[in-house]
Design a protein around this nucleic acid. Sequence first.
DNA 1: TTAAACCTTCATGTGTACTTCAAGGCAAGG
DNA 2: CCTTGCCTTGAAGTACACATGAAGGTTTAA
Lengths: 148, 148
Amino acid sequence: MNIKEASEKTGVSSAAIRYYEKESLIPPIDRTAVGNRDIDDRIIRRITFVTQMRAAGMSIENLRRYIELFDAQEDNTKEQKALLQEQLGVMEEKHGDLQAAIDHLNYKLNHFYDHMESTEQELRELERQHADKVTQKPTEDGDGLTNY
Amino acid sequence: MNIKEASEKTGVSSAAIRYYEKESLIPPIDRTAVGNRDIDDRIIRRITFVTQMRAAGMSIENLRRYIELFDAQEDNTKEQKALLQEQLGVMEEKHGDLQAAIDHLNYKLNHFYDHMESTEQELRELERQHADKVTQKPTEDGDGLTNY
DNA sequence: TTAAACCTTCATGTGTACTTCAAGGCAAGG
DNA sequence: CCTTGCCTTGAAGTACACATGAAGGTTTAA
């Protein structure tokens, strides 16, 4: 498929796909007779992988290092492990921050709700939607942003 | 406390604190007689809140809108709700992506481990550390990055 | 055969979120 | 008195991750 189809399939812009190839986040892409990129499913999967890792907050630079290590044929087991471990740490931390912020907002939303008329059900739905994910509420609402 | 102490306490640079104040992410900070910022715990909490939301992926712009709404005295209940709802959506999505990426890396790490000598215990520890957080593994390891 | 709709490379522009620099003020220690 | 070390504002610079534009090539459809 051409780059536009790949773009539509992945949700990544054509320019970004070219950029990823140049930065070696995805392998060199085969070209057609006239020099156009011919993108197969392997490349699509790689693009999707990049998208996931980017969404998870991994920088282009780290992602490139990570991929280089995995693509290399030498025995760089140790470095691979170290890099995985490092990235897992970063992601767990982000995950924690994110969860804290979500909990915080949910708490605020619930508190907020307590002081409102109960005619509007949207908030209840929202609350129900997220209820299973809220594990703990902040011990105090200390950011000074609660007017209610 | 002065801005340097606040910086050390929050892990946010002095320049960033000034920037946050200018962008109204934190309230106007009191000044001493000679014009230096005198930062109290309320400001510290605000800075921490900003840090958390930033870490969770909220943009400066959205964060400012959010804070403006909460600081305003008018009855903007509806907008506050909408903004909270919007941000919760964004964060839940990010959370999902992040979890997917973490699961992916954990799966890779486990798979990886299966093919290694069991003399090195670090990976077991890492595995143990994160085991409770891994809820599901990717159905296939389709990014082409598994050499092992 | 001419326009539309793709594509290419290379260069430059853009938005975000700060960081760094320049120029200067205040307070304490030697 | 002068250096050190903190602070101030305002302007300009930087890094990242692309987006956009220029100049041109190919293929398809009218």
